[in-house]
Design a protein around this nucleic acid. Structure first.
Lengths: 148, 148
DNA sequence: AAAATTAGTTGCATAATACAAGTATTTTTT
DNA sequence: AAAAAATACTTGTATTATGCAACTAATTTT
């Protein structure tokens, strides 16, 4: 394959599929979007709603409702900020952390499996390249808002 | 970044965002899913509904309705197969081909922009790596049904 | 102190999704 | 060759996701 768009198309589809594996943890059925939200909350330090919504490039109204669901499921907790009463600080509950850890573990297992089809040199090259690509995308003007 | 899951998460999100750029062509407003369907039909030779649905890992009922919409928009044509009356052969209309070409062009422009943030050597390495990754994913048991 | 901005919520309308059950056709079994 | 099973696709229906507009409440700017 030489055509970038072709590579990109297939990769995008496959990433989406791999990602879908994320989402059954014990009793919980979690949607793809929800798993991304949980992932972001887990990674950040006392994030507000706006921050997470922005880093996932989600509409704040959609996001608000997703958070409501996650709070009901007892995976996410909303705490009013002491500094600004408009702001809600998001955090994971104990269950939320458990779910996050589980998803993380299975995703890493899946990725290990994928990478097991390469030799050590290839693995290293690919990882380095993906980092390069990420960097290039973060510099890009045409895409890729969730920057950090 | 060393953690595969982290890289993968960010990349997936960014790919999704880049992909969303696809979808305004002149008067047409096309959804992301629709652009993927058009892409697949364009690439294949006289594909049936099942074939496209499967290669995109879409539920056939959802797919059926998407095709109905695309037919209404005069982008896709359904022709009954002469060999099997159950089967519908999909093809792009003239307008559909126009839209496909336009999307292809803008996506390639976007991708060129992304790759412009690398030097020649990096570009080559990254492309080679993405192909390696695609290959590994196609061999994987844990993911990635749209195989070809 | 009034006006403007920001953070988040709710009302609504639209689209995407998928299970269950349907029709029509083809293939397999007996 | 008739009955049964499988395949290709459609439709009914219910659920969820999405995002614009309009809202409240708090904060910042003027």
């Amino acid at each position: 394959m030489e055509n970038k768009r072709e590579i990109f198309h297939v990769l995008t589809r496959r990433f989406g599929l791999l990602d879908k594996n994320c989402c059954t943890v014990g009793n919980f059925e979690i949607s793809l979007v929800q798993s991304h939200i949980i992932y972001e909350i887990d990674k950040r330090n006392e994030p507000s709603m706006q921050q997470i919504a922005e880093s996932l490039a989600m509409d704040i109204t959609t996001f608000s409702r997703q958070i409501q669901t996650l709070v009901q499921m007892d995976l996410v907790k909303k705490t009013p900020s002491p500094h600004d009463k408009r702001v809600s600080i998001l955090s994971l509950t104990v269950q939320g952390k458990f779910v996050a850890a589980n998803i993380d573990h299975s995703m890493n297992t899946y990725l290990e499996e994928v990478f097991s089809h390469m030799n050590e040199f290839e693995r290293e090259t690919v990882i380095r390249s993906l980092n390069l690509l990420n960097e290039a995308m973060s510099k890009s003007s045409v895409c890729c808002k969730p920057l950090y």
